[in-house]
Design a binder for these strands. Sequence first.
DNA 1: GCAGAAAGTGAAAATCGTTTCACCCTGCCC
DNA 2: GGGCAGGGTGAAACGATTTTCACTTTCTGC
Lengths: 218, 218
Amino acid sequence: MRARLTERQNQVYEYVRTYVREHRRTPTLKEIGDGLAIRSTNGVHKLVSALVQKGYLRRRPNEARGLALVDVDEDPYAPSEGPPILPLISRTRSDEPDRLRRRPNGALYVDERLLRKPGGAADADDCLLARAGDDGMVGDGIRKGDLLVVEETDWKDLANGETVAVLFGEALVARRYDFANGRLHFRPADRTYAEEVYPPGDPACHVIGRVLAIMRTL
Amino acid sequence: MRARLTERQNQVYEYVRTYVREHRRTPTLKEIGDGLAIRSTNGVHKLVSALVQKGYLRRRPNEARGLALVDVDEDPYAPSEGPPILPLISRTRSDEPDRLRRRPNGALYVDERLLRKPGGAADADDCLLARAGDDGMVGDGIRKGDLLVVEETDWKDLANGETVAVLFGEALVARRYDFANGRLHFRPADRTYAEEVYPPGDPACHVIGRVLAIMRTL
DNA sequence: GCAGAAAGTGAAAATCGTTTCACCCTGCCC
DNA sequence: GGGCAGGGTGAAACGATTTTCACTTTCTGC
């Protein structure tokens, strides 16, 4: 149960909900202020902060119209049902992995039955698609250009021997993961590619997560 | 009828539509640029202007994230159609191919973007899923157990060199197809498997169709 | 070859929108 | 009477986004 709202906070919340229904986007702070006769955007900002704190709204920092209703039911664009839509990412750099999800290059429906990991089902919200950037895993039947279904994971949660998607600088590739002697080892399945070894935290290497499945169009 | 779009304009339009579906808001010019590898926001701005001109997008001048899809806004509650569900078949015999679709062993959502054939998009109603029954195509990155996305096709509609799904008796496998000297040739990509040759109409061999894509869980 | 359309670069200018800073007011509780 | 939470004012700093300017490239039809 979420925390109770004060009267003013509730007015803000209702205003946002109504605005979203009518405009199909969230209002700016100024618009909220205009609607509720608050002259200072800062006044609105504080009220909104309370709403965020109490879990009614979400905020994308520093973004224009960066508010979002937490209850997706209110979201006019929310898809009725069906399989998850995973973002397809590309053109990434290991020194800004945060941008992975923010600059998707497309999106595909992926059946949930493909989102299986050793322990069970993976959360679709943690998954994304990426293209294998080289032929280093042809020996395992993964070829350059294949779509990798990746569950975003910290490298600490990986088990030895799992197939992972990893960023080496700008190259996003699949490799077999092993942790040994305090270092991360990434082994290709093909002899023509070299094994890569990095200490944890090396900015030149960013583990995106475990590969759950692959898809390829012929 | 709205004016035709150039290829690039269409890419922008599709990018915006996809972005909206996934993010529930419209992208910024910069995000479009990132997605389509356009470095200058002005390049995007011009493309978007063309889309606005032709009536595909609307623009709220000088507003952050001020783009809007005309279609969505005109008909906000239009039902969004989901991806097709393809039947997964198994336990088949070449002498009763009609039963292929009758005894599905399950079904998966498959994104339409995976249903592409050389000429264009395949009709989802003609497609099905089947598991590769052997390792005869490992050389092409198809392994036993992989899910094959197959477009049901008569063998006469196949071109030489296409990868096909074919039933040899009870075994459903992928092979490369060639028609030569009045006979159907099915070549494996792996030397340990033998090439199979049949005359048209042989009951021991039934071509299911062309393989459009593969999917594999690790 | 030249004109025009489509697409793009790079950078600057103009706006829009969010965040922060300093300070004020009211009601309430101890 | 002090302290604190909720609500506000105004202004300034910042960052995100759009818009405009000047110039380039590629392709296509006349």
